[in-house]
């Protein structure tokens, strides 16, 4: 009776056979719905893959035929050489990696101060962090651009990293986690003459792997999938990230949907592979932070 079969609202007399039948009918029904939803969720990606192996004439002609008769593998080398795709990969990886490392480091340090140390104005400053989280990115977008221009950082990856690096979410997330670590551990280390940094590095951080993992995933995804910032800051094709690269390709090859699908497939491969390998952490991270938020 623990199943929440809301759609089944008949009150059938509780006899053993009936319940068994209802239960198996119900799980069949559940499977059916779950399967349909799964197909809807995956279909666009299947269509993308299938389209990427067709040509301009056949892509819409036999849409239903998801496995092309003569797969055109040479769409891929064509895409790969028509825009500097290898550069796009490298640029995106570099920006996402540096943003993530920077975010995790600065956030963890600040979160430690907020959670475990005392200093005047601590709660007021933390309130400032929370208040900042409420403000949409679009409010900061224009002055950030002016600032980067004045710093001579237009058309650089540094700008992309800097605009993402200091988002207060990471500090908030890690502080909440650090608070759950009992103070006795750090207190006894302090009595033994351990420096604050060593307590932070050798005691608190190793105990916070789950929260750090969540922040790593959050930050990686956020930076990897960022579109508006690269769009604003980058004009050199050689500096493009995958997301602006895809957009650029879409504009360049407007009607060649088979090539656009090949380019999109290439752009999605890394994130899908990482997701499939680390899906447990992705999903657990989202469900826990989602609830805490």
């Amino acid at each position: 009776m623990k199943q929440s079969n809301v759609l089944d609202n008949k009150n059938i007399p509780q006899n053993g056979n009936n319940i068994k039948l209802r239960k198996s009918l119900f799980s069949l029904f559940t499977y059916f719905i779950l399967l349909i939803v799964a197909v809807v969720m995956v279909m666009p990606f299947v269509w993308m893959l299938s389209g990427s192996l067709k040509d301009a004439a056949t892509i819409f002609q036999d849409s239903m035929n998801l496995i092309p008769d003569n797969p055109r593998w040479d769409n891929y080398p064509k895409v790969w050489t028509s825009v500097p795709f290898a550069m796009f990969y490298w640029n995106t990886t570099k920006v996402a990696f540096l943003t993530t490392v920077g975010t995790v480091l600065t956030s963890a340090l600040a979160a430690y101060a907020f959670a475990k140390l005392e200093f005047p104005g601590r709660d007021k400053i933390f309130f400032l962090y929370i208040a900042t989280m409420m403000i949409p990115d679009q409010v900061t977008m224009i002055p950030q651009f002016v600032l980067m221009r004045d710093l001579g950082l237009i058309n650089t990856h540094t700008a992309l990293i800097l605009v993402k690096l200091f988002h207060p979410f990471g500090v908030f997330l890690l502080r909440q986690f650090f608070l759950t670590i009992p103070n006795e551990l750090s207190d006894s280390a302090r009595i033994d003459g351990c420096s604050e940094f060593r307590i932070f590095w050798n005691i608190i951080l190793p105990l916070s792997k789950a929260a750090l993992g969540t922040l790593v995933i959050f930050s990686l995804l956020n930076s990897w999938n960022d579109f508006i910032n690269p769009l604003i800051y980058l004009s050199d094709q050689s500096l493009f990230t995958l997301q602006v690269g895809i957009r650029y390709f879409q504009q360049l090859y407007g009607a060649d949907y088979h090539l656009i699908m090949a380019a999109t497939t290439l752009s999605l491969i890394p994130i899908i592979i990482v997701y499939l390998f680390a899906q447990k952490y992705f999903i657990e991270g989202i469900s826990t932070t989602g609830l805490k938020g």
């Binding site: 480091l105 600065t106 956030s107 340090l109 600040a110 430690y112 101060a113 907020f114 140390l117 005392e118 200093f119 601590r122 400053i125 400032l128 962090y129 900042t132 403000i135 409010v139 900061t140 977008m141 224009i142 002055p143 950030q144 002016v146 600032l147 800097l162 605009v163 690096l165 200091f166 988002h167 207060p168 500090v171 604050e196 932070f200």
Partner: peptide
């Protein structure tokens, strides 16, 4: 010591987030 922990984040937040909020 506490401020040293806070500093990298607070400086960054001030320059790249708080200042833009007001400037905007």
């Amino acid at each position: 010591v506490a401020f040293m922990f806070l500093l990298p984040s607070l400086i960054g937040l001030s320059i790249f987030v708080l200042y833009p909020i007001l400037a905007s």
